[in-house]
Design a protein around this nucleic acid. Structure first.
Length: 557
RNA sequence: UGGGGUGUAGCCAAGCGGCCUAAGGCACCGGGUUUUGAUCCCGGCAUUCGGAGGUUCGAAUCCUCCCACCCCAGCCA
């Protein structure tokens, strides 16, 4: 599990330059989610960036909940978010909440009022919007814009005291209603919300807005570099304005980078919520979700997620990363550490006719093909075994290396068998096979003139374990899924994103499998147990398939 | 058509005026090893950096103009 080196990026270059200029004695960052949903892999990019920088520069990174809107937030989310950040493997310098700073923020607001830089506006929301102007036309001043400091002070005190209902007053920064940057047209900095906050309860009925809260919270925490996504780029002048016009304890710098987008999935909280509410997936931790909890349940390792982010880099360019890159990252992480085992997902019974009824030989099998430290295990082979239905074809195409009538194939870790007859069920479908084994092919011997290219896995019938296996695939069939007119996903969905298989056969040694070991089921992919497993009824999730150039060739033509 | 951004291969991404006849990864195409059609190994894959001009002995890197795409008019974050 080698961690990819962080590499350089434009943000680290800025920090390096700042350090060279002696601007900071310590680098301080923060990861600031709003607790209104679960973290997804896009957040992992920010976590990797912020915590990675703090770690590499010997600084610190705070997990700060941006909890300024009580109507959207919930304690459930703050717990889930902290769990996910820890799972990703980072040391959290401190856990903070913007709500910890409500009193200080309130003081800063008072300071702005006293300086004549903020005023209480009684215009209703709709009017404020009209007065704001448009992208191409300047706005107009509110009638309340020139009220006295005393009046603003008194009005703001009454806002806090609860004298007004929701929406009856707001506190606004007095900047410039004609600014070409709409964010500077007297932005609202406090609004009234008579709603209990998940942490502060009923202590407040006015809540600060994001722009006012964020930069000032950064300043309170001594954040040196405030890293956020591109859509906040034109909020930066406002971010700087608040810090410049209040006695801020420090002067953080905001730097923006592009969000992560992944093909064949969606990343917005709104759309992920929609998938859950419309029943497309089972919840935030459905293994098909791009959430960290979904990926964790699916079996992805924290290192694979970190390596994935490292491999895509940090820039300001809009991007869509191919899902294959993520899949590649888990395979790369798991290959050297996953013990191998044999499992048959769609069993086809095979009788080896030239083996006695009571035959039961024990074969010593390596647990890893390249790493002897994994040791070996014993696997029993007797007259009745299961092979994968996909490994047998009545009428095989060219270059099909597996079994067919009269054909030969090697049983992995054992000998070559030849298919001598096929038995059908009442509907005429293949029900079972009768094969005979070739004694001279034991121990890997490839007798003169016999070229058996195919090697298939198998499971001994007598002591096989029954299991349920869930095969996951991309949630969408379209690379860039968009909701339909009704806001739901229909056409874009991949109908086979979850295939549940029961009656799968696992080799007996898996009876001792632990919940947190990720196995490679040879020739199939990487698998791990789902929390739905109960004793006697194991449930496995397929984390990712193995690369399969045969399937790919088939799909191509 | 106001403001803010971004454009290097199918997807990411190094590059910061000469060491670039442009790193690396994914994908793709060969070939080798292999009792996983896996892994691993070796080779191929941009005479060209959104376009057009210009500066310079020298430009992906500097300048000008143009084009394309993304973001912004919440009392959301």
């Amino acid at each position: 599990m080698t961690e990819k080196t962080a590499g350089s990026n434009f943000i680290r270059q800025i920090i390096d330059a700042d350090i060279d200029h002696g601007k900071h004695s310590e680098i301080v960052t923060r990861f600031p989610p709003e607790p209104n949903g679960y973290l997804h892999i896009g957040h992992a990019k920010s976590i990797w960036l912020n915590f990675g920088i703090a770690r590499d520069y010997g600084g610190r990174c705070t997990l700060r909940f941006d909890d300024t809107n009580p109507v959207k937030e919930d304690a459930e989310f703050v717990e889930a978010i902290e769990r996910d950040v820890r799972w990703l493997g980072y040391e959290i310098g401190a856990v903070a909440h913007a709500s910890d700073y409500f009193e200080q923020l309130h003081d800063f607001a008072l300071e702005l009022i006293d300086r004549g830089l903020a005023y209480v506006d009684s215009l209703p929301a709709e009017q404020i919007r009209e007065y704001r102007g448009t992208l191409t036309e300047p706005g107009r001043n509110s009638p309340d814009r020139d009220n006295s400091v005393e009046s603003n002070r008194e009005q703001f005190e009454r806002m806090r005291a609860g004298d007004f209902g929701d929406g009856e007053r707001v506190l606004r920064a007095k900047i410039d209603m004609a600014s070409p940057n709409i964010n500077m047209r007297d932005p609202v900095i406090y609004r009234i919300r008579h709603h209990a906050h998940q942490r502060t309860g009923d202590a407040w009925c006015i809540y600060p807005m994001y722009d006012f809260t964020h930069g000032l919270s950064d300043a309170i925490e001594g954040v040196t570099h405030s890293l956020c996504t591109l859509e906040f780029e034109d909020h930066r002048p406002l971010y700087d304005w608040f810090i410049a016009n209040v006695t801020a304890p420090s002067e953080p710098r905001q730097i923006e980078f592009s969000r992560l987008n992944l093909s064949y999935t969606v990343m917005s909280k709104r759309l992920l919520t929609r998938l859950i509410s419309s029943g497309v997936v089972d919840g935030w931790d459905d293994p098909r979700m791009p959430t960290l909890s979904g990926l964790r349940r699916r079996g992805f390792t924290p290192a694979s997620v970190r390596n994935f982010i490292a491999s895509v880099g940090i820039t300001k360019k809009d991007n869509v990363i191919d899902m294959l890159v993520l899949e590649n990252a888990v395979r790369e992480d798991l290959d050297p550490v996953a013990p191998r085992a044999m499992a048959v997902l769609k069993p086809l019974r095979v009788t080896i006719s030239n083996l006695p009824e009571d035959h039961a030989e024990s074969i010593s099998v390596a647990n890893h093909p390249k790493d002897e430290s994994f040791g070996t295990r014993e696997v029993t082979l007797s007259r009745e075994i299961f092979i994968e239905r996909d490994d047998f074809m009545l009428d095989p195409p060219k270059k099909f290396f597996r079994l067919s009538p009269g054909g030969e194939v090697r049983l992995r870790n054992a000998f070559v068998i030849r298919c001598v007859s096929v038995e059908n069920d009442a509907d005429g479908n293949v029900a079972s096979l009768v094969c005979e084994y070739l004694p001279e092919t034991r121990n890997g011997v490839q007798p003169e003139g016999r070229k058996v290219k195919g090697i298939i896995h198998w499971v001994n019938a007598a002591d096989a374990l029954d299991a349920e296996v869930r095969l996951y695939d991309r949630l969408f069939r379209e690379a860039n899924p968009r909701p339909d007119q009704d806001g739901e996903f229909h056409e874009a969905l991949n109908p086979d994103s979850l295939v549940t298989l029961t009656g799968c056969k696992l080799e007996a040694s898996l009876a001792a499998a632990s919940m947190d070991t990720r196995y490679q089921f040879e020739r199939l992919g990487y698998f791990c147990q789902d929390p739905d497993s109960i004793p006697g009824h194991p449930v496995y999730n397929r984390i990712v398939t193995l690369r399969d150039s045969w399937a790919k060739a088939g799909a191509a033509g």
